[in-house]
């Protein structure tokens, strides 16, 4: 039962990854791509790590640390990239 749940989480995360990465190929603006990438990529990665956590609960400290740092860093990184890219284009 737990095994099926963890595989479901990992599969869902990979689907989220593809969903968030495919807009990267198109000719959209940087901010649109950043939005889809930061939302879907972070959710997908967190879902994958949650699936791994269900698989091996004994390594919970490591995986919870990965979850927390993923959530915080990707949010901050999204803000920094948006600030830098839009600030660079204002100057031109």
């Amino acid at each position: 039962m737990i095994d099926i749940l963890s595989y479901t989480c990992i599969g869902l995360g990979i689907i989220f990854w593809f969903w968030g990465t495919f807009p990267l190929i198109g000719k959209r603006s940087v901010l649109f791509k950043l939005h889809s990438l930061s939302v879907a990529d972070t959710l997908g990665s967190m879902s994958i790590i949650f699936g791994l956590l269900l698989k091996i609960p004994s390594e919970w400290s490591l995986l919870v640390l990965a979850l927390i740092s993923l959530a915080i860093w990707n949010t901050v990184l999204g803000y920094v990239l948006a600030y830098c890219s839009s600030g660079g284009e204002d100057e031109r």
């Binding site: 791509k33 390594e59 990239l81 830098c84």
Partner: peptide
């Protein structure tokens, strides 16, 4: 060719590779 698009792809690759390392470790 846009450098910010490359940076976005780099951010995506960096987080993806580290999650892959975690999957391999499990």
């Amino acid at each position: 060719e846009n450098i910010w698009q490359k940076m976005l792809a780099f951010a995506s690759i960096a987080s993806k590779t580290s999650v892959m390392i975690l999957v391999v470790s499990v």
